[in-house]
Nucleic acid binder design. Structure first.
Lengths: 354, 354
DNA sequence: TTGTATGCGTTATCAA
DNA sequence: TTGATAACGCATACAA
């Protein structure tokens, strides 16, 4: 059942190198290299001989050696903020084809929102001499990021720009997103709403709340009618917990709608609402943020503020690649606009009964 | 706004090497290496001098050079089958700490269910000389996998074993899982059920259906009362589409419960059911497979057949690491048992009304 | 068109 | 305790 297979090659045999191929083909090492890198400069006859030797020996280029020689790796890296949130995987999915088109591999790492993990990943990536780093940072102004730039490694911020603005970034205006979400709720006639989200250390959360408050004030609503339900993380579980607290409010203070700082919170809140028999959107309207696929897939499809996830990744990749290749590169901030995607969780025009 | 920063080091300056450090510290290159690798053999005074030089120059080891020297990389890789399914990311999350504990990095790749992409990733990984590969394969018997083994690279199958059984694998018995799911529905009194899933080329799907059919037969039910609704992929969208077809069945043939080959399908089906006003579980009970976090988070929490996702990853990592390190390694198949996680989507004991 | 020689940065061996 | 040297596999400049 668990018999060791008799391999055609001893497991300990070392990989054949260009030298071995050269010997087998009866040519010099340089010729083998030419076959690999400038095949047109080699005569058809010898080329075939070399290629035959390569396949017979099972030759595979050693990437470490190539990198050492080249002075840099052929890879990009993306350090995401929360591996449990599909949003970031979608961003990564946008980066990958761009990296591949440039002949580069993509290393995907997850800081999990912890500065120490972020720093550790960054360390490793510098050791690998990656050509560029895409990062959704725990703290966009952390000193260890400046260190990366000082080394001359292209570093692009994804979803957040740093204060100094001295590097490329790809952002979606979170204040504007907060405004859009809140205005949607105002339009739907809600007069008492909740903002669900936290912790406050996350800039995106602060901005979205700020946007919501702006709109709220502009419509002349009372600040106290926009209740902030803080959470400890942007997770489904915290969304559920927020639901409990929301349900516990005295009815005169209870909001008729909730704007969640991301879709995970919104899904948790939705679940809690349904479980206690609330009708969504009639008893409680819910709007999320990010528009991950699971938002559209929810039992009550979730209204959400869409960020162009793949596009973020693609654009960020374009920027690092430019910074890596073009000596005249100038940093730029590519800003995208969030857009509202209205679904059933806030009521459709059709079904809305005032 | 997009001003080029004046770096303390010219962007083109090359990274300092051990040689540079040695020069700066006034010692030989070998001593620097000793500081790095065998600090105890260096006198405290020189060690400090070297360390100071290192930090002043901003020295960072070059991983390529280390790898070239060592003859192998310090990395593991996981090639997942579907990056859009959180299940696989959870497996990866189980691998990572194990890799880290062994001092290895983890490359995560996504074949997206396509053999050519899988092959391409594998190629790249061989070039990188990774120490081992974890793989949820498109086809566990594909010849390019044998090629990996022939090279002596530890290869562990995750969630699927190959026919020959000549390598390590970590599996969860899908037939058994299918049985558990179907029996749960039988227990709930369902006499006509659907199996939603496909394509047939996916072994896991075949096995789960087989298990369901086994139970169905063992309980003396008619084969025709277990309807197979094939899908083209294991996605939310396909789940929704299956819902349409299910609703289109004549009522005498319409199942009262659906067993979905994975949770994404189940979520799609759930959404469709809710959208057409079906009550879940009363009008239609739904059971999924994998028990991803979003199953528990659904508006109607989804009953699912749980696979120990992180544990799969952790165990697979243990096996590759053993194969990579122990010359006396014997291949083994670590088999886990799936377990039912009953939630509201199939009715709870309490609320169940026969 | 092909061959020879050198160096990338690191680690390890050996001699001092 | 420290220093000099070789080797890992590859790509390239240059010579033949």
């Amino acid at each position: 059942m668990t018999q060791q297979m008799r391999d055609s090659r001893a497991p300990s045999a070392k990989d054949p190198s260009v030298k071995d191929v050269a010997a087998a083909a009866g040519v010099s090492l340089g010729t083998v290299s030419n076959v690999l890198n400038r095949p047109s400069t080699v005569s058809a006859a010898t080329r075939q001989r070399v290629e035959r030797a390569m396949s017979e020996l099972g030759f595979v280029r050693n990437e470490s050696a190539r990198q050492l020689r080249a002075g840099r790796s052929r890879a990009l890296a993306y350090v995401m903020l929360d591996g449990g949130n599909p949003f970031f995987h979608d961003v990564a999915a946008g980066i990958e084809p761009a990296a591949e088109a440039a002949g580069l591999s993509l290393f995907v790492c997850n800081s999990d929102g912890r500065a120490d993990r972020e720093a550790r990943h960054l360390d490793l990536l510098v050791q690998q001499r990656v050509q560029g780093i895409l990062l959704t940072p725990v703290d966009p102004d952390a000193p260890h990021l400046a260190e990366i730039s000082r080394r001359g490694i292209p570093l692009v911020m994804v979803g957040r720009s740093n204060r100094a603005g001295d590097r490329c970034s790809v952002t979606v205006d979170d204040v504007s997103g907060g405004r859009i979400a809140a205005e949607h709720l105002v339009d739907r006639g809600h007069r008492r709403i909740a903002f669900v989200g936290g912790p406050d250390s996350i800039g995106q959360v602060r901005d979205r709340l700020r946007g919501a408050r702006e709109i709220w004030a502009e419509y002349g609503r009372l600040a106290e009618d926009l209740i902030h339900l803080p959470t400890e993380a942007l997770t489904v579980g915290e969304g559920r917990a927020a639901g409990e607290r929301l349900a516990g409010l005295p009815s005169r203070r209870r909001p008729t709608a909730a704007f969640c700082a991301n879709d995970l919170l919104a899904l948790g809140l939705l679940q809690h609402a349904v479980s206690v028999g609330l009708r969504v959107p009639d008893d409680l309207a819910i709007i999320g943020y990010d528009d991950i696929d699971f938002a559209a897939a929810a039992a009550v499809p979730l209204t959400s503020v869409r960020q162009p996830r793949r596009e973020l990744g693609r654009t960020a990749a374009r920027l690092v690649l430019d910074e890596a290749a073009d000596p005249g590169h100038r940093h730029e901030e590519a800003a995208f606009a969030p857009v509202l995607v209205a679904r059933a969780s806030t009521g459709t025009i059709r079904s809305h009964a005032g």
